[in-house]
Design a binder for these strands. Structure first.
Lengths: 223, 223
DNA sequence: TGATGAACTAATCGCCCGATGAGTTATATA
DNA sequence: TATATAACTCATCGGGCGATTAGTTCATCA
């Protein structure tokens, strides 16, 4: 059962030493490694997760194949399985929202009711324009329509993070419903500006969007 | 729209002789017709489109297979191809927005600036709660994150239908941008209420939503 | 230094997908 | 009635998918 080594011959072609310095014999430049552990320190695991986030963000869950992720990470597909198990569980990890998010939102909610709408819009845009948070957010919103876990995460984010942050500022009748509506406005903004890419909204600068959209959130905060 | 799919009872119960090697050919109960045109008038084409709309609305473009649509319509998969060609072109037809929509939106925009926000929200909810318009809208929004044509349709709807309707009422600086923001709010509402199913928003009654959300649209209309 | 295990690739499996083509039966036309 | 055409199924194909297995190379540590 062993000895499939006939195939292996391909790899080596010269036969002789394949030593550590092997760079010469191994791997075409930029191409794939020919098998076995790579020398030096390894950051591959993170590279795969980054690639996954980027792919999921760009095309959503269904349209993203593990092969594509693997290719983007410069790695064989089965290594993705090796590190993350199923596609589903990789997706879960890719959805993990950076800790930064609750903080930024909560900070924006601080400072009283006055102009909190503007602050929330600005904070939201900041998160979406930040390259370290954007892929996860994009993945969440883009896949929420199609994948139950992403939808659940979106709900959870809307309630846990947003509603909690707003709880001191949105008070009175139907406070929870009104928090929902604030979340609704922010998700709508992400949808149209970053996913549907509706113009001129998508190209408008932050200040302009804040100026017009802030008061709309404010209207709901104040009930 | 009701009794599509007369397939079941009638035909196979009758057991139409089906010459030839008949034998077990008489299919299982509730099973499919064994080939050849069905007797009587045919509504199959529409049944397939309805099934497609329902499936696309429920799971989006990628996750919906033609086999599933065919099954929902009580028909062989290749008949779907026969009538609609590729999956893509079937999807296009399923996206076709009922003529009713522009009318309803335009009607809501009539009547001056005062309380136009409330009227727009109400019109929007009416469309989403109407079973004849809902599947197409759901398909559009649900697939917009993942399918370029759906995204284009969403943009087009946001501009052509909404911006046009609002053009007399949203005036002044950045009128187009502000129309975008009104569309943004409505799409956000659809996302959270009908797709992410965020509670208590999803279960709130129309009047309540109109009462709280209307003023938020109004804030943007008035700039 | 030798053994254990982690990182990595190659090959392949079974499944479901969209699409096609051939064959069967009803309706429409003349 | 003869012929054409539309409606309908069945069988099948090539391909991409997620997943698994076997085997190779490197790192670590007793």
């Amino acid at each position: 059962m062993g000895a499939m080594n006939g195939i292996g011959g391909v790899r080596e072609a010269g036969g002789t030493g394949r030593g550590r310095t092997g760079a010469k014999a191994v791997a075409v430049a930029g191409g794939k490694h020919a098998g076995g552990r790579r020398p030096g320190e390894t950051r591959t695991r993170e590279a795969i997760l980054d690639a996954a986030r980027a792919c999921f963000a760009e095309r959503g869950f269904d349209a993203t194949s593990l092969r594509r992720i693997a290719e983007a990470a410069g790695v064989d597909q089965s290594l993705v399985h090796h590190f993350y198990g199923t596609k589903e569980s990789l997706f879960l990890q890719a959805l993990e929202v950076p800790l930064k998010m609750p903080e930024v939102i909560a900070a924006a909610a601080e400072g009283g009711r006055e102009e909190v709408g503007e602050r929330m819009v600005r904070a939201h845009l900041t998160l979406w324009d930040d390259l370290s948070t954007r892929p996860a957010l994009m993945t969440m919103v883009r896949s929420a329509s199609v994948h139950r876990v992403a939808a659940a995460r979106l709900r959870e984010t809307a309630t846990t993070i947003l509603a909690d942050a707003l709880s001191k500022v949105v008070t009175g009748d139907d406070a929870v419903l009104r928090s929902n509506l604030v979340a609704t406005q922010l998700v709508g903004l992400a949808m149209m500006r970053y996913i549907a890419v509706l113009e001129p909204l998508a190209s408008a600068d932050t200040d302009t969007v804040v100026r017009y959209y802030g008061p709309a959130l404010q209207a709901i905060v104040e009930g």
